[in-house]
Simulated scan of single mutants.
Amino acid sequence: MTVKQAIRRAFERAAPTYEAAASLQKEIARRLDDHLEEMKLQPARILDAGCGPGIGFDHLRARYPQAELIGLDLAHAMLLKARGHAVTPTLFGRLAKLWQSVPDVRYVCGDIEALPLAKDSVDMIWSNLALQWMTDLPAAFRQLHRVLRPDGLLLFSSFGPDTLKELRAAFAGLDGHNHVNRFLDMHDVGDMLMHAGFGHPVMEMELITVTYPDLKGVLRELKAIGAHTVQEGGRMGLMGKREWRQLAENYERFRREGRLPATFEVIYGHAWAGRKDKLEDGRQVIEFKIRQRKAGLR
């Protein structure tokens, strides 16, 4: 099984439980939407790249009610959940939608690294916590740049290298295998955006801490959102009782005020297609912002 197939299978299996367990994803979607406050644009067509069960639809609908939405995901089961999320449940809501002529959401099962969309076909791309699962992120950025119209906006969130640092430390030295995914630094992501042709990338980072009563709670939620896939160096078999006991003991070192923390380094980025903001020697300007604010979610 390839890495891509393993990722697809993980999210196919997580589709029934994803939205109920996705409190972090919902909060980051809200914060991602806040980044649009100062951006003056009225996109006619928006791509939600890696839409999952449609968590971003409500934000995009509220901000751009007349825009056509395209929900794209690698996992077909996620798209089925997204379709249910987008349906207006009440008769009044359906009549209001008809009266306002709000476009329906279009659903595409596809890979961001090989987008099944035409060149210059969307005005804006929104991607909330999907790009960290790419096996070839530079290729994904090239594809996103290809489908964006000139001066179109890419807005995304992803995970950085300090994500789940407590769990990684608890696994360290346990069996010599990787059990926690490793994610790219925002500076590397910014460079990739530039090489893909995007203009004036802006990157920000913040740390969000989610707390749990025990180790099982951490692992259960990661599995429920499909975030337990290890891309390289993962162990093929299951751990034994002794190793699970040692892992739990290792994680206990991080307990504070009766709760176990799980840190997520969240990267926010936006860039424009078709803009060439370069210095006289040809180098391109990338703006970085680091926010060390810690926010707790329970």
Rank of each mutant, 00 (worst) to 15 (best):
M1H: 03
T2P: 03
V3H: 05
K4P: 01
A6E: 14
I7D: 06
A14I: 02
A14C: 06
Y18A: 04
E19P: 00
A21G: 10
A21T: 02
A22S: 11
S23E: 09
A29S: 14
R31W: 11
L32P: 00
H35V: 11
E38F: 13
R45H: 11
C51D: 10
G52L: 10
G54M: 06
I55T: 15
F57V: 13
A62C: 03
Y64H: 14
Y64D: 02
E68R: 15
E68N: 05
I70F: 06
I70K: 01
G71A: 15
G71L: 07
D73F: 04
D73T: 11
A77P: 00
A77R: 06
L79W: 08
R83I: 05
H85G: 00
G93Y: 06
Q100W: 08
S101K: 12
P103S: 14
G110Q: 08
G110P: 01
D111G: 04
D111N: 13
I112N: 02
I112W: 01
E113P: 00
A114E: 14
L117Y: 13
D120S: 09
S121Q: 10
M124K: 01
I125L: 06
W126A: 10
S127F: 06
D136P: 07
A139S: 14
R142G: 15
P150Y: 13
P150N: 12
F159D: 01
D162K: 12
D162G: 03
T163N: 04
T163K: 01
E166P: 03
A170H: 08
F171E: 05
A172L: 11
L174C: 07
L174N: 03
D175N: 05
D175T: 02
H177V: 04
N178C: 06
N178T: 14
N181L: 12
D185Q: 10
M186L: 14
M194Q: 12
A196D: 07
G197D: 06
E206C: 11
E206N: 08
L215R: 01
R220E: 10
E221G: 02
L222R: 06
I225T: 13
A227K: 09
A227P: 04
H228G: 04
V230E: 02
V230P: 01
E232K: 12
M239V: 04
G240L: 00
G240F: 01
G240T: 04
A248D: 10
A248F: 06
A248R: 12
E252Y: 05
R253C: 04
V266D: 05
A271Q: 09
G274F: 06
D277F: 05
K278N: 05
L279S: 02
L279K: 04
D281R: 02
G282P: 00
R283V: 01
I286V: 15
K289R: 14
I290K: 11
I290F: 09
Q292H: 14
Q292M: 08
